[in-house]
Write a protein that binds this DNA or RNA. Sequence first.
DNA 1: GGAACTACGT
Length: 897
Amino acid sequence: MDKNLIIPRQSRPSMAIPSHIGTQFELFPKSTKPIVSFTERNDSKLTDIRLNYICKNGPLSEAISVIDSIAHRGSKVRPSTYINLLESCIETGCVEVGRELHARIGLVKEVDCFVQTKVVSMYAKCGYLDDARKMFDEMRERNLFTWSAMIGACSRDKRWREVVDLFFNMMEAGVFPDDFLLPKILQACGNCGDFEAGKLIHSLLIRCGMNCSLRINNSILTMYAKGGKLDMAKRLFDNMDKRDRVTWNAIISGYCQKGEIELARKYFDTMHEEGIEARLRTWNILIASYSHLGHCDVAMDLMRKMESFGITPDVFTWTSIISGFAQNSRTIEALVLLGEMLLAGIEPTGITITSAASACASLKSLNTGVEIHSVAVKMGFVDHMPVGNSLIDMYCKCGELETAQSVFDMMLEKDIYTWNSMIGGYCQAGYCGKAHELFMKMQDSNVPPNIITWNAMISGYIKNGDEDQAMDLFQRIEKDSKIKRNTASWNSLISGYLQFGQTDKALGIFRQMQSFHVRPNSVTMLSLLPACANLVSGKKVREIHGCALRRNLLSERAVANSLIDTYAKTGNIMYPRAIFDGMSSKDIITWNSLIAGYVLHGCSESALSLFDQMRKFGPRPSRGTFASIIYAYSLVGMVDEGMHAFSSIVEHYQIRPGLEHYSAVTDLLGRSGRLVEAMEFIENMPVEPDSSIWAALLTACRIHKNYGLAIYAGERLLDLEPKNFLIHKLLLQMYALFGKSEDPLKLRKHEKENTMVKPLEECWMEFENMVYTFVVSDRSKPCSDKLLSWIQRIAIDVKRPDPESGIWIEEEDKEDVSGVHCEKWAFAFALIDSRSSPQSIRIVKNLRMCRDCHRTAKYISKAYGCEIYLSGSNCFHRGANYFHHFKHGHCSCQDYW
DNA sequence: GGAACTACGT
């Protein structure tokens, strides 16, 4: 009965009657002589022959007049005639004739239930399920076949609930399903999640003794397994007296879907013991699951293994692996495999193409993307919606909005993905007007927007700097539509504020979302954390850390990595180590972050010993590792070791050194006073030095008092960054110290040309849960007279001969009579004006710290037993010491900055 | 018994 007829899945009238069929059938009778000629006198037997001929050769529409003439003669049309005609209607998708036949069959009781059932199945198989149901409901008598036709039709149309409801009606009517219908009903129970109904059927079958059939047991097992009820599935599996490949596949794929890949593997490995060999399908289940869970390499090994067992991977095998690689950011491997698959002569499916296109999208690899596009066209996937959608996305991500738009325009059918991809593309590129235009069109074409659309629009507005529109949309979503805002909606706002440096507003949104019971996710963490990577944000980081712990987000490596990095930058190196030690899986970023953290804190020994461990147990060191490691050697003056590390980059690790490495080596040589070598090193670099390199040399020359070379480095630096006020100021000092009088004039001209404005010196300090701002000569703070006198008294103590710096006092940043640098106000405030004596002080400054303040900070750290962390956010030499850590009268920078 | 892919937020 079920002959796998080609039935359109949905009721699409245009597809229901293929237009070519009519012509084909019209031409035929003209070219051949009819076998019999029809005359009025022919008896019913001849009529039947005629109708049989029409059934086979058409045109079907002629059958109606034949039937009418039979009725006109007062004879009866035999049921088998109707059956044959309806069967032909199904085969040709000719619902019009079917309808005419239906009108003639009617609902008269005398007419066979068999014929009426055929009408139901005719409608259903032509794609008119509602007509089928109408006929079914009007029927006075229904047998097992009638129920089967109706239930089968609903099942094909995935109307699972309806199938289950029909089943109960059927039972009430006293009709019991057979071996063919039961699997459909059980499948429906599973797919609509009605396990109660499923269990009921199961127990019913046990009571009736029908559960002995392997086919039905497999159906029940599948129902449980697909629904994640693996305990039930396993119990049934163990109780089954006979098992076949279907049984094993069902249990294996059940465990796979649950993510219990190891258990699935166990079954896979033992099935042959029962004499059942894994075939292609079974291998594919396992491979797909490994791929899906990100174990791409295991999946790959399995594919090779199945080949060695003589089983050729099919398009499903390849596609699983390709999309597995694509989804795990191993996009290049995915594309290579696609090539291999095409070479093996396997035709891709729409899903293969979709995965490959998305790989190109994330790689922003337009050329390959275009190739994939042409493969898609060649293979005839132009009407495959996910393929079109992924191509639109690919072109958008590659910045080819026009091509994306043309793919979009050519798509006959558009779904929510199509619209969202195109709208998202315009939003990302900042074309909010275009996005909005499409947004309107989308609603006109009856595709209602979803949360993805809204979120894309919100982030589009924010990227455009249109905070009001974004906020307005954010507020309107839940009011105007029934769509609920999700974490991504909040994340869009957060990243929008962060983009414009409004960290506090972003944090406000972060707190608000939690009070709205919206769960922050790893994206929230990963956007907020970098914004808190400064010395005054320690408390914020702990807040985010706490949230990550509560939400179990620390298990995500990226979050843990970011926390390591951020904590280190807030002046805390204990937490990063603890997080590092607690991580079950570490990647290169994990190792590099902690190593860089140690270097940042001046802990060269820890950095180097971690590097040692990394080489033994960790991932292969990368460029970033070496940039930190050379600084670690630099800090402790191990020049030879540092140079050796540098040369090993090329020799051992085949990494081409980058500017970061050259800069580190300049620092290494310069710090130890090997200024000429440093200069030679710069001159012999195969790449053009950037400002970080000249800055490293300038710093070294200042410390080692080679003012001639300092001026040279400073001038190169100024060439590269003509608007940098700090460089300008340092250079002026160098000229003064070197005794040059003409050059400053040249510099002043430079100054005029670039209209440099000296930034207002200010600093921030987190203290007793507040962030305070201080500016030069800050008299606005309470009790400032008290603070000033403290500062003056401290100054006397500090001015005592400093054995470390010797007699050299640099004439830089001299505080004038009335001016007091902002960090001194901060020290005073923290130590005098606070109720408790602080253990540590954390300050972020917008400019560089001067020598006098540095000396003061060292003194305070000793005299008050208080650690001070200070960073100049405008620090122009970002080498090893990103910040100063004062402790026991010493600074982590070893007076080198 | 019958697989999987695409869109927002870093």
